[in-house]
Design a protein around this nucleic acid. Sequence first.
RNA 1: GGCCGGUUCGUCUAGGGGUUAGGACGCAAGGUUUUCAUCCUUGAAACAGGGGUUCGAUUCCCCUACCAGCUACCA
Length: 475
Amino acid sequence: MNEVRTRFAPSPTGFMHIGNLRTALYAYLFAKKNQGRFILRIEDTDQERLVDNAVNVIYNTLKLAGLSHDEGPDVGGDHGPYIQSERKAIYGEYAGKLIDSKHAYHCFCTKERLETLVDSSGNRKYDKHCLHLDRKEIDAKIAAGVPYVIRQNVPEEGTTGFSDLVFGDITIDNRELHDNVLIKSDGFPTYNFANVVDDHLMEISHVFRGMEYLSSTPNYNLLYESFGWEIPQYVHLPHIMKDKQHKLSKRHGDANFEDFMEKGFLPAAILNYVALLGWNPKNDVEKFTLQELIDSFEISGISKSSAIFDELKLRWLNSQYVKELPAQEFHLSALKYYSGIPAEIDTVLLSRLLQSRVSIVSDIPDMTGFINDFENYDTSLFDHRDSKSTKETAKSILPVIIAELEKADVWDNDVLFNIFIRISEQSGVKKKALLWIIRVAITGHLSTPGGASEMCVLMGKDLSVKRLKYSLSRL
RNA sequence: GGCCGGUUCGUCUAGGGGUUAGGACGCAAGGUUUUCAUCCUUGAAACAGGGGUUCGAUUCCCCUACCAGCUACCA
């Protein structure tokens, strides 16, 4: 069996779409699983859609995701160049071969003529009008500078079948096939041509791509046959959807990798989640490192139906990764959300409290709001049924708490907690109610990244006492 | 419109001629916990519809519906 070679072939048209990332991931996993090579090829044949810097976005994303390619424009390889715009002459040469063997032909039809070919239902199929031009006419038109394209000459009868590793065998009537443009009038190849030539020349064994190419695959097979080339294995992938009707689209700004990174999701979590959209490992495991994904990846686990992207589940998965982060690493990534926090707050302690409580780091501002936003809280927070706390209890017990805390000379969690327990026992105020009151009186928030004593330690003695007094004054 | 593909809890999915149709997220309830979160337990929640084939169909076949894709000098 030949070496497994897969490729990721994005167009540099902007950000890295999540669907594209998954395609890259599957191609990478399959290559690595089979000791093969993963190749990056840039498909920039549409000169009108090029976006500055988009190639760098692709490099960066692959790097962040940990999908390192063995060959590509930046790392080289034996099958270059890996940027299609640098391969223009190659496509011209191969198109020439197809013309010689009558599998392709020059077409000089104008846009206006093409318009006349539209049928009643709005479809247009080229009528092979230029197929029968003779050599002299063609040469004359070319010499005269008449713009032309090169079209594939598909058979008018029979059927063309292909086999897909996900979707199985599919056969299409050749009458459904169009004489696709292979070389555009600007001399650049279309995707339809370039992908066939490049996949062959780069010795790609397995072609991973979105299922939108399913319908044009017969055309590609015909091309391979015209050249006498071996046809690669196809692995068409179902789409990732935003909802039942809509594919994940770049327009919403929430569908690309960079945005998720920006929101604070971990690349490993994004990759892990995306791997599970449309593929399953045939067991109940949901958390995978990249290496574990490589080890368990099987094409037979890829599903045929599209999947809706669920950010909530991604959040859950991300929280699993956050919990496992080394404390320093979490602290480092949390740091950028601490800008408004006063210097006297121990942010290392804060990070420790937050780590087990956030799903993504960008949750931090919400969870630390109590640090700067305290005074205007609603005092009805003291009324809490589950902990049996009431405003009245708060009013009567707060002075005791304040007095005890002012006396405290050691300010750590255990000491404070024991003081609270003692107050509870002596006053008859239930532990749960007491702790609720203290926590609310110090933070003014319903939800905080820790319990009463932890919040006291975090805020420090002076601030804690000051806040308790302030809270008492409002009751 | 034509062609191609798809359809299991709200979502991601397992399964497959006879199952209490399994798991995960989310949701609900209870428990542990120093609030919240974590963690644990429990619960509600699905085979698109109709015809066949069969002793038996969610599973196989056909039709319909619905969804998506293609039908470009975009990829």
